[in-house]
Design a protein around this nucleic acid. Structure first.
Lengths: 369, 369
DNA sequence: ATTAGCACTCTCACGTCAAGAGTGCTAGTA
DNA sequence: TACTAGCACTCTTGACGTGAGAGTGCTAAT
């Protein structure tokens, strides 16, 4: 039996993957014939299944169990076999409506995106906030709290707000602070970290520096905050829907009798670890940020070993040349790839449209596929 | 055998609670005699245990198992029997050092507090940000993003920063926006929500209102944000250390053979639910905010039924008359109350000192007990 | 190429059984 | 009266065995 991937074998592979994604039960030859009304006998299907196993697309947990897809099987399914599964118009409407309701609260967007992703795909979600690839100074505000303590509020070009406290050598009035911030705001309007650096440097070398000691102190804090920001850019991962993921049969011992219940507990702990530590994800974010379209990483394809049982579906979102972030789904390798991909694609497009609106670029169509 | 709580019975109760907290194994009469070198036989201890069971302080899972404390047992232990367990000087030093490092980054404080609480008490932690009981306007900034889109940054008296976007009818220059915000900042400096409300009302009733349409629109947004803030004040719960809690034996089937492994899974899911939904906690927060000292709620004492297996140790922190928040530990009823209480008390005092420093009140001693 | 038939393997649920842990009770002692 | 030794009793736990059922792989026939 030569191991050739015939048309029929591809069809059977597709059925096996779909069936397993749906039921989480290893699929048997008999089941396929019955459920999909195949015109051949179960014995024939068995031969084909054996061939698909030889080809590395299927495997079985033990000799008298049905087949489950390997990572390669899922991969082939995603690339070649999968049917598109666009969100229903009703779902699209609901989602758009939810985003419409919080459109003016910038910091709610990520929360909402994470929640909606998780609920729609029934798995955990990850979202990074929209950031410009290079932070530019937008605005500074100095607010006297008391005596020598000052609250410094820094607004960056992409809308990020950062707050710090600052202790001065001598007390200054709010009026003084206003003057300082006004000058810095004027000098630094819309310039990048490195340009501020240069500005400070040049000024210090003059005989009569333009900036006072206090202003230099403030600029130093700003620079540090901005640099810190650029370093952190990929690490700020917001996540939601752990519960949704843990409601998948993989984590419910009663539904997955084939194994020890302790495995399920261990798996839950591992999932929690992945989502809170961010290891294994932080590697994928920059990659997704640099790519177009939806990225899928399946099980063993991950570089991190603890991700071996999980797949990730990611997409970039944002406005070209202005800001960009990443959002996606993480779940067991047996996740519904069609649905996850559609969900990620749709929500990325909604977020992008919102951002385009905010940044004044013309709106694209929201309707999917 | 009259059910009287003699001195000796109290002592034995204390031993049982300590032993069970330490090992998570139901404690047997024999074990007590051996481990604590009691001068009486196991039979005598058995009689005392039976009496303590009659009194409602102990129970057993099944007839041939050791005793475990009831909620009432834990309660009596916490109120009357428990030894103090202050954090070691080394631990105190480490914690102070960690807070010192992020002292200027206000938004890091809560994160750090949650992390440190969780790691020190080996359970999950909850922290609400420090808020003043009534929000007062501090500062407004309007930043032109493009055309008619404006970013509104609102700073409240307690250092909270809130950002919103705003769409105007007609485009305004940044200079215009500066003038508007300057006037509002001047008029509204340091006043409360209701005072702003009044101000706006009075102004609208004049023949020639002082505030322009745009300014009124902005004030409306500010008011809404501030009101929303006051409503949310108890719901903004930050949490950490779920992993620490799930490392407790209660959640590890291998260590708690007495039950089905599926129970452990169900319990993990419930714990996750509690921490993410915030139900059952949100009731306790205002209560803790209104009390002095450390509050302990044990198992069935909770009003929420899903909290029956968990205990919570909470304390208020903050500066009297200025800002206050709540922090605490949540874990299985078999948590180390002495350690949790010390940890909560210590971190509350560190946070309070930090805030006092920020608000310019003299510092109290940091050392515990 | 397909299929009917069958032996084979492995899981799963159930029952049994013996060992062990811990108790409660009784009777006896200081 | 307070304590204790001893023992019967209960219940868990783990090991083992067994039979039913699921699903496969192979062979021989079409």
């Amino acid at each position: 039996m030569a191991a050739i991937l015939t048309e029929r074998r591809q069809f059977i592979l597709k059925l096996v993957v779909q069936e397993f994604i749906e039921t989480a039960i290893p699929v048997a030859s008999e089941t396929l014939v019955r459920k999909y009304k195949l015109r051949v006998s179960s014995a024939t299907v068995r031969n084909e299944l054996a061939a698909l196993e030889d080809l590395g697309y299927l495997t079985q947990l033990h000799i008298s169990a049905g087949r489950i897809p390997t990572d390669a099987g899922y991969r082939f399914f995603v690339e070649n076999l999968m049917d598109r599964a666009p969100l229903s118009p009703a779902e699209q409407r609901t989602i758009r409506h939810q985003f419409y309701q919080v459109r003016s609260e910038l910091d709610q967007w990520i929360h909402l995106a994470a929640t909606v992703l998780a609920r729609t795909a029934q798995n955990a979600s990850v979202v990074t906030p929209p950031r410009s690839y290079q932070s530019r100074f937008k605005h500074l505000e100095l607010i006297a709290i008391h005596d020598t303590t000052v609250l410094l509020v820094l607004v960056l070009h992409d809308g990020t707000v950062k707050q710090q406290t600052l202790t001065l050598d001598t007390a200054r009035s709010q009026e003084d602070l206003r003057r300082y911030s006004a000058r810095i705001n004027e000098r630094c309007a819309d310039i990048s970290t490195s340009q501020i650096e240069e500005l400070v440097m040049r000024d210090q070398q003059r005989e009569h520096p333009e900036f006072s000691d206090l202003e230099q102190q403030v600029l130093e804090v700003i620079l540090r905050a901005m640099r810190q920001f650029e370093d952190q850019i990929n690490e700020e991962i917001h996540s939601d829907g752990l519960i949704e993921m843990l409601s998948q049969p993989e984590f419910i011992p009663a539904l997955i009798k084939a194994e020890d219940a302790e495995r399920a507990v261990e798996r839950m702990r591992c999932a929690l670890e992945i989502l809170t530590s961010g290891r294994g994800l932080s590697l994928l974010i920059p990659q997704a940020l640099a790519s177009e379209g939806v990225q899928v990483v399946i099980g063993g394809e991950h570089s991190e070993d603890e991700m071996r049982e999980y797949s990730v579906v990611l997409s970039r979102y944002g406005v070209n040349g202005a800001v960009a972030g990443v959002l996606g789904i993480i779940g067991p390798t047996r996740m519904s790839y069609p649905r996850s991909i559609s969900t990620v694609r749709y929500i990325a497009s909604v977020m992008s449209d919102l951002l385009r609106e905010l940044y004044g670029v013309e709106k694209r169509s929201l309707d999917q596929d």
